[in-house]
Computed example of a mutant assay.
Amino acid sequence: MSPSPPKLNLLVVEDEALIAQELGDTLQDLGYNVLATCYSYAEAQQALAQYQPDLVLLDINLRSANPTHNGLALAQQLREQPAPPPFIFLTAYNDLDTIRQATRLRPSGYLIKPANDAALFAAIQTAIERGITQPQAPLPDPSDPTGTPDYFFVKAGLQIVKLNWNDVASLEAGKNYVTLRAPALQLVHAIRGSLAYVLDQLVPAHLRGQFLRVSRSVLLHRQHITSHDEQSVYCGSTCFENGHLADRQLSEPPSV
């Protein structure tokens, strides 16, 4: 069995156990690795000293006896690091004063709980870009769950690389996961869930029509299909069973 591909490492700071568990499960479903879940200010400080996360998700209210021991203080400590990781506030606070305090710390995102999967995925991907590129990308709009960019970031060895959705040749459903393959870049990425979930929640709306169903468990990007017959569909040298693809689908313009 080949080793699992590396994943982006996230640190979660959330004081409510049920919310933290649900958030951790969602992040793992989206293909991320949760290094640790911190339920208090002290635990977060210890984890930040121990790990080197690619991104940190911060709640603001950590219900500490000391009111200054909150997510804002942790964000300030992150900012003081020589090479701080990007961080996103994920909080129930939506009042103007808190938002102003938070934005002074230059977060890579500010999401109001509960954030749906698409908004969370888009915010994390944009935050990773903000941590890599200059000038910084704009903050994602937390009220717009359709703001998924045309690309996403994955781990390739020790590096974080940008993978365009148009470079993904296939979406292949397994028992619990969908495997995304970009053979030209030799990249493989796994997301827990169904094909419908990945296509409807994570793939940008204007690119969904590029992925054609060739069987019950496989979607192929039309630009990567090199030939097909009644039995098989080919993406270069890779062969897939043809259970659904017809000539007319390739000749039709992509739906949007």
Rank of each mutant, 00 (worst) to 15 (best):
I112C: 01
K113M: 04
K113T: 01
A115G: 05
A115S: 11
D117V: 13
A118R: 08
A119M: 13
A119C: 12
F121R: 02
F121T: 03
A123W: 06
A123R: 03
I124G: 02
A127T: 12
I128C: 01
E129S: 14
G131W: 14
I132A: 11
I132T: 14
A137Y: 09
D141H: 11
P142I: 12
S143G: 14
T146P: 01
D150G: 10
Y151H: 15
F152L: 06
F153K: 04
V154H: 09
G157H: 03
L163N: 14
D167W: 03
S170H: 06
E172D: 11
E172L: 11
G174Y: 12
K175Y: 12
N176F: 09
V178P: 10
T179I: 03
A182K: 12
A182S: 14
A184L: 02
Q186F: 09
Q186E: 15
V188F: 00
H189P: 00
H189D: 13
I191D: 02
G193T: 14
S194K: 10
S194N: 07
L195V: 08
A196V: 13
V198T: 13
L199P: 01
D200I: 02
P204M: 04
P204K: 11
A205G: 11
H206W: 06
H206M: 00
L207D: 06
L207G: 07
R208V: 14
R208I: 12
G209S: 06
Q210S: 12
F211C: 04
F211V: 02
L212G: 08
R213W: 00
S217G: 08
L219Q: 07
R222P: 04
I225Q: 05
H228W: 09
D229E: 00
E230F: 01
S232K: 02
Y234L: 07
Y234A: 04
C239K: 08
